[in-house]
Simulated assay, not measured.
Amino acid sequence: MSVTIYHNPACGTSRNTLAMIRNAGIEPEVIEYLHARPTRAQLQKMIADAGLTVREAIREKGTPYAELRLGDPALTDDQLLDAMLAHPILINRPFVITERGVRLCRPSELVLDILLSPQQGAFTKEDGEVVIDAQGRRVVR
């Protein structure tokens, strides 16, 4: 199975998502998008394929979102995309692309919906939340 993750190693959600992909026995293509920025077309496609609006794909926390006044409802999708491409920290993460679809994996366990391979063992997030039990089954809260 081909899996690509747009990853930020400084983000716990992104690290947890990557770890769940690997817990399924998959070694994904890891794109550290802060250094290897997606093209405009790639970013637009990821957002659309995930079923999101451009505004839903923008990260506010820890970014220049407020400083750039990106909350202004008069801004167009093109203007928002321009900002995201100029400041990739504004791209919410992690986006994961598989044969089963594209997801913005927030929370990280959303990745489980688009992986073909089952989890191979228990998985606990960095914060201690158990997501997969010892039999490889998703823990539902």
Rank of each mutant, 00 (worst) to 15 (best):
A83R: 02
G121F: 05
N92K: 15
R138D: 05
I114Y: 02
R106C: 14
T98A: 08
L112W: 09
G101Q: 03
V131R: 01
R141V: 09
G101W: 04
D113F: 03
L104A: 11
R137T: 02
V96G: 04
A86V: 03
Q119S: 15
L115E: 00
D127W: 00
T124Q: 13
C105L: 06
T124G: 08
L85R: 04
I97W: 05
V111Y: 09
D133L: 04
V139I: 15
E99K: 13
E99Q: 09
T98R: 05
Q120N: 11
P107D: 13
I91N: 05
L112Y: 06
K125D: 10
G128T: 01
T124V: 14
A86P: 09
E99C: 04
A134H: 05
R141Q: 07
I91Q: 02
P88A: 02
G128D: 02
G101C: 10
G121W: 01
L104E: 00
V96E: 02
D127A: 04
D82M: 07
G128Q: 01
G136Q: 01
Q135H: 09
L104P: 14
S117N: 15
E109S: 10
R138Y: 13
I114M: 11
G101I: 11
T98K: 05
H87C: 07
E99A: 15
V139Q: 04
L104G: 08
G101H: 08
D113S: 14
I89L: 07
I89Q: 10
D133S: 07
Q135W: 00
E126A: 10
I97V: 15
I114G: 06
R100T: 11
D127P: 07
R137F: 07
V111G: 15
R93T: 10
L112F: 12
N92L: 06
R137S: 08
R103L: 13
L112G: 09
K125Y: 01
Q119M: 13
F123K: 05
R138K: 13
E129V: 09
M84K: 07
I114D: 02
I91R: 04
V111N: 15
D82H: 08
S108I: 10
K125N: 13
D133A: 07
R141P: 15
R100M: 11
I132A: 05
Q135P: 01
S117Y: 09
V130L: 12
H87V: 06
V130T: 12
N92Q: 14
V131F: 00
L90H: 02
S117P: 13
D82V: 12
E126F: 04
V140H: 03
Q135G: 09
G128V: 02
F123V: 09
Q120C: 10
E129I: 12
C105V: 06
V102A: 12
F95T: 04
V111K: 11
I97Q: 14
P118A: 05
C105Q: 00
R137Y: 03
R100C: 10
